[in-house]
Nucleic acid binder design. Structure first.
Length: 203
DNA sequence: GTCTAGATGGCCT
DNA sequence: GGCCATCTAGACA
């Protein structure tokens, strides 16, 4: 199995401030192993959601419910949730009882591309994983992954490339128009010019 | 129990 | 740019 070729990121990797983690996750490999095979891609776009003070976060105001519970736990766990017809995936960050997370918005297909195409029912490489709902479907990430660790199979965040000659850009988050001042926080990070960064040019 | 909005995506005009 | 599928957490009664 090819999975052993991927080295899981050490737990310590996740124990940095959330904005830093959102930045550091760029270039890492996101891997999912299933009965159908292994699929993986480089993370090229993320967004930070920072706990009680962030109106756009599900954990705004310290809201601790069945859904947000996992965000109060250790960094490096998976927070998955259903959005309309899709499942979105976050990396829990922050210390215990600090409900913070990083949304993975886009990846660049790297491994298991045929499997991803099959799952997405399309051939277009560019549209396979360039959005938070698309990448979960392509990788086979679902609500079953809620609470799983990103440091052990079947779900992994592994060392990827170091985006040395890649410029990281930073800007407003997407799709949170009705969240007051939080709307304008520059907590979205992406690799400049990468063709797999999501595009939803709404204001 | 009932109601509503939503960290989206795909198809339509 | 508009519409809507599809569904659940969360709020309120």
């Amino acid at each position: 199995m090819i999975l052993q070729n991927f080295k899981a990121t050490e737990n310590e990797f996740f124990k940095v401030p959330t904005l830093e983690l959102a930045r550091n996750l760029l270039g890492c490999l996101l891997v999912k192993d299933t009965d159908e095979g292994v699929a993986a891609g480089y993370i090229v776009e993320t967004e930070a959601y920072i706990g009680p003070g962030d109106r756009a976060a599900h954990s705004y105001g310290g809201r601790r419910t069945k859904r947000t519970e996992i965000m109060f736990h250790d960094a490096g766990l998976a927070y998955t949730y259903q959005m309309h017809t899709h499942c979105l995936v976050n990396v829990v960050s922050g210390k215990i009882d600090a409900p913070e997370a990083v949304l993975i918005r886009a990846i660049e297909p790297y491994h298991g591309i045929e499997l991803m195409k099959k799952r997405r029912k399309m051939e277009d490489l560019r549209n396979l994983t360039n959005g938070p709902g698309k990448l979960t479907k392509a990788l086979g990430i679902s609500m079953e992954d809620y609470g799983r660790s990103f440091a052990e199979p079947p779900l992994l965040i592994a060392d990827g490339f170091v985006p040395d000659d890649c410029v990281v850009e930073r800007g407003k988050r997407i799709g949170i128009e009705n969240t007051g001042e939080a709307r304008d926080y520059p907590w979205r990070f992406w690799i400049k010019g990468n063709p797999y960064v999501s595009r939803r040019l709404k204001r």
